[in-house]
Design a protein around this nucleic acid. Structure first.
Length: 874
RNA sequence: GGGCGGUUAGCUCAGUUGGCUAGAGCGUCGCUUUUACACAGCGAAUGUCGGGGGUUCAAGUCCCUCACCGCCCACCA
């Protein structure tokens, strides 16, 4: 119970308000109104000077730890970060007061694409240069300068907020520690066969000849045409009157056109609206399938046409072929119920897997199935058509090719119709040219083996979400287990730790000159000398993975050109394979979330087995916004369990639910989960209801608020806003000097002022009681132990007045409420309880009573004791 | 198209498993500058709890339905 009083005492002194330090420094001259601008910096400085936040793994106390969601270095923090960090600070400070061995790790995220884009934009604006003008090293150098500037600013903002982070443990997702963790993780995944290289459609900027991310695309409405093209059907019986029954995919019905009104037949029952549209197409069916497209030139890359399996207009044709106009190629008619919406258009879709994301998905869905389709890339990196497009079109730019194709189709009478059409076309933000979906090699992480345990720990409640409903998003996203593309064609980030070299194998393994050179260069030695580590991949169309041990065996089967990939964490090896053996490192960098995913264990020292890691992993709780539950939270759970989990004695379902915290702690450790709780904090919106974000530029700098209202006012107000359901709308006023503020924070400012003055009153009265003033610490600690014990009222009632007893009981009740509120991460309830107790109970009632009691010599002393212990701040 | 959240006083929002006369802050109105605080104190007014239907002795709370606002994801051949 003593801990209760310690709690609340500490809410007042340091959690929110820092009164203890403030008053000890300023007690000689307390200004009437609270002046945060003069008080707060002094207090914070004292905390730093006294190393209050520096953690020591050897200190006593149960561990309590939080890692900060590292803010992006793209710019300054806004109020969204302010609320996130305030809530963390409340938890951390409370844990610290309760005697826990507490660690809050701060840090910053390099935020690959976003930061590079910002710096490139600046480069363009200030110097009119592109990244190619300054080169890879030059650009990275400039981004580091940016990082220095904004990284410092972010840390300064956090300090102005009063965050009690252990600044000596500050990390950056691109620092050496994180880099080691990234390389180690990549290596392990690679070795375990969970990283592979594969094709993927990326957004290709044909002007800059680089891929760009979805974030860098803007959509523009373009007026174009929808061209309806006739594809001749081949390989079917010539008679148009043939009944449809008995055809593949057909399960019933009267047959042919005759059943067009039979909307209850199994074939059409699921598709309302077909009855009307069916008739006009029927005559066509004998000879052509008509497809509509906005991009006729891509037909050269078509490898199939798709229909819905339950569309009676077309499902009889599944398995047959059409002749691809202008090429003479025969391509199959396949069924794909995901791609094709039978209610849209003609119900037939051309499939161009190399140049359309949906079509590529079709390709993947049908891969290894009987109706597997081909993949034909018809574009060069510069956007011109390549040799696969055929002699006539090779070398044409895409718009020229389009015109030519339309003309040729028309000449052959295969153009059924041309109708004007408006569509959204993605454009590159940098070159302002239309983006081309383009097939390129990327690295992937296989999700299924990683996702399964991560799903399990949330399903079984090992990791809990607050509010609970956010677990759904996590579960449904992870449940898809879509492989994670991790390579980015960027310069800012962790470079992919893979080195490759192409080798000609036409003379066999030992006969190859180059391979002989490889031996001479010592690569075989390098590979063989690796522990069980270093992995190689042999890419010969498919992907094989082998470790160093058996690489020689693996190579024996190959005669043609192959590529050898080496992944290693050994820096000596890296130097060798680069300088000596002529291997080249992959130019791409890793997705920024790859390093973020490791954050909870990399910041604690992993891959080394550090004292920090043993003491504070797993962390207690993660506080973050709901927008990155999938991108970040899910991946932290996966990589945490993968790197930190002890698979030997993990999930043993046989263990009964002994709710021993010790046991569950052991279990958490052996599972490797990065945190027990995930608390989703509200999103801060601007006055128009839009999410505050750096990129939108609608963020409000918390320092602006701190300057007008004070950090404590900001923090307290934000805590009251942290309800379970609501996002927070924050209308902002522009100050004459350009700063932003909001009178929403008057609430917190008024409360801080109230606290200040109540404290001031108590202190001035305490000074009239020298005995107390001189031995306050002793007194209050005695009171904390004894007087505030709930049972105290019964046995000490003759000593204390009714008012004394009442306020003490209210105090204890409030502390209990606060415990409950914070256990459920209900920061609004916590703040309200503090507010109600302090303002309503303590100030409005008890202080008034105390005024009388202090005048009466009989009760003055004990009253002062109670005042002192309740406030204790002094 | 799929998922989620919201709609309670003029404004911003609480209201936990249904249960006293539906609350807080701000704002408004009146009074008070009383020796902690005017960034204050005392007092007052203000709600068909988005609409409709249902379950119940009892609904802001549970069920159905409609409307509007917002967010996330997918997608528009």
């Amino acid at each position: 119970m003593a801990r209760f009083s310690v709690n609340l005492e500490n809410f007042f002194q340091s959690d929110q308000f820092g009164l203890k330090s403030q008053l000890s420094m300023l007690s000689t001259e307390l200004s009437k109104p609270y002046e945060p601008a003069t008080v707060e910096p002094l207090v914070y400085k004292t905390w730093l000077d006294e190393q209050k936040f520096v953690a020591n793994p050897n200190s006593p106390g149960d561990p309590y730890s939080i890692v900060i969601p590292p803010p992006n270095v793209t710019g300054a923090l806004h109020l969204g970060h302010a609320i996130n960090n305030t809530l963390q600070d409340i938890l951390i400070r409370r844990a610290r007061m309760m005697g826990k061995n507490t660690l809050w790790i701060p840090g910053i995220d390099h935020a690959g694409i976003a930061t590079q884009a910002v710096v490139e934009k600046q480069l363009k604006e200030k110097e009119n240069k592109t990244r190619h003008d300054v080169g890879r090293e030059g650009l990275v150098e400039r981004i580091w300068q940016w990082k220095q500037q904004f990284g410092d600013r972010i840390l300064m903002q956090l300090q102005r907020l009063g965050c009690s982070c252990d600044w000596s443990r500050t990390h950056f997702t691109l620092d050496d520690q994180c880099a080691r963790a990234v390389r180690e993780t990549f290596f392990k995944l690679f070795r375990d066969g969970l990283i592979y290289r594969g094709k993927r459609l990326v957004n290709w900027d044909i002007a800059l000849q680089t891929s760009i991310s979805d974030d860098e695309i803007y959509h523009e409405t373009v007026k174009t045409n929808l061209w309806h093209i006739k594809y001749p059907i081949v390989g079917r019986a010539p008679s148009p009157g043939i009944p449809a029954c008995g055809e593949p995919g057909r399960t019933g019905g009267g047959g042919g056109e005759g059943n067009s009104r039979d909307s209850t037949s199994p074939g059409s029952s699921g598709i309302p609206g077909l009855v009307e549209s069916r008739l006009p197409v029927v005559n066509e069916r004998a000879q052509f399938m008509t497809v509509a497209t906005t991009r006729p030139e891509t037909l050269l890359g078509d490898t199939a046409v798709a229909v819905h399996s339950e569309d009676p207009r077309w499902n009889w044709a599944i398995g047959m072929h059409v002749e691809l106009p202008l090429t003479g190629r025969k391509i199959p008619i396949i069924a794909d119920d995901i791609l094709v919406d039978p209610k849209f258009g003609s119900g037939v879709v051309k499939v161009t897997p190399a140049h359309d994301p949906n079509d590529y998905a079709v390709y993947q869905r049908h891969l290894t199935k009987p109706d597997e389709i081909a993949l034909i890339n018809i574009l060069n990196p510069d956007g011109t058509l390549n040799e696969n497009a055929g002699e006539k079109y090779k070398g044409l730019k895409r718009d020229k090719a389009r015109a030519q194709i339309v003309e040729d189709l028309e000449a052959q009478g295969l153009l059924a119709k041309t109708e004007p059409y408006e569509t959204q076309v993605g454009h590159s933000d940098r070159s302002k040219t239309p983006v081309e979906p383009y097939l390129s090699d990327q690295w992937f992480v296989k999700m299924a083996p990683l996702a399964e345990p991560a799903l399990q720990v949330v399903r079984d409640g090992t990791i809990k979400f607050f509010p609970e409903r956010h677990a759904q998003q996590y579960l449904s996203w992870l449940g898809e287990k879509r492989d994670w593309p991790i390579s980015r064609q960027l310069w800012w980030g962790h470079r992919i730790p893979v080195w490759s070299k192409r080798l000609k194998m036409d003379e066999g393994l030992t006969g190859s000159f180059e391979l002989a050179g490889l031996y001479e260069a010592g690569v075989d030695h390098i590979l063989d000398a690796q522990q069980p580590d270093s992995a190689i991949v042999i890419d010969a169309g498919g992907t094989l993975i082998g470790t160093a041990k058996d690489w020689r065996e693996r190579l024996k089967g190959y005669r043609d050109e192959i590529a050898i990939y080496i992944c290693t964490t050994n820096s000596l090896t890296i130097a060798d394979i680069e300088n000596y053996a002529g291997f080249v490192q992959d130019p791409d960098v890793l997705d920024t979330w790859f390093s973020s995913a490791l954050w909870p264990h990399s910041t604690l020292g992993w891959p080394d087995d550090t004292a920090d890691l043993r003491k504070w992993y797993p962390t207690n709780v993660l506080l973050t916004g709901r927008d990155i539950v999938t991108l970040w939270v899910a991946r932290m759970v996966m990589t945490g369990m993968y790197n930190m989990g002890n698979s030997r004695d993990s999930t043993s379902p046989g263990i009964p639910e002994l709710v021993e915290s010790r046991l569950s702690e052991d279990r958490a450790k052996s599972l490797g989960i990065p945190f027990h709780h995930v608390c989703i904090n509200p999103t801060i919106l601007d006055g128009h209801g839009e999410r505050m974000s750096k990129s939108k530029g609608n963020g409000v700098d918390p320092v602006d608020i701190i300057e007008t209202h004070g950090a404590d006012a900001l923090r307290f107000t934000l805590a009251t806003m942290a309800t379970e359901t609501q996002d927070v709308r924050m209308p902002v006023k522009k100050m004459p000097d350009g700063r932003n503020t909001s009178d929403k924070f008057d609430f917190g400012r008024n409360f801080c002022n109230k606290l200040w003055n109540a404290t001031r009153f108590v202190l001035t009265n305490l000074q009239q009681h020298p005995r107390l003033a001189n031995s306050r610490d002793e007194t209050s600690s005695r009171l904390n132990r004894d007087a505030l014990h709930p049972g105290y009222c019964e046995h000490l009632e003759n000593k204390y007045t009714l008012a004394d007893q009442w306020i003490i009981s209210q105090f204890n009740r409030s502390v209990a409420e606060i415990d409950t509120a914070l256990a459920n991460y209900r920061f609004d309830q916590y703040a309200k309880t503090v507010y109600d107790f302090f303002w309503r109970d303590f100030c409005d009632w008890y202080l008034e009573a105390a005024k009388l009691q202090l005048k009466n010599s009989a009760t003055a002393a004990t009253t002062a004791e109670v005042l002192a212990s309740l406030l204790d701040g002094a």
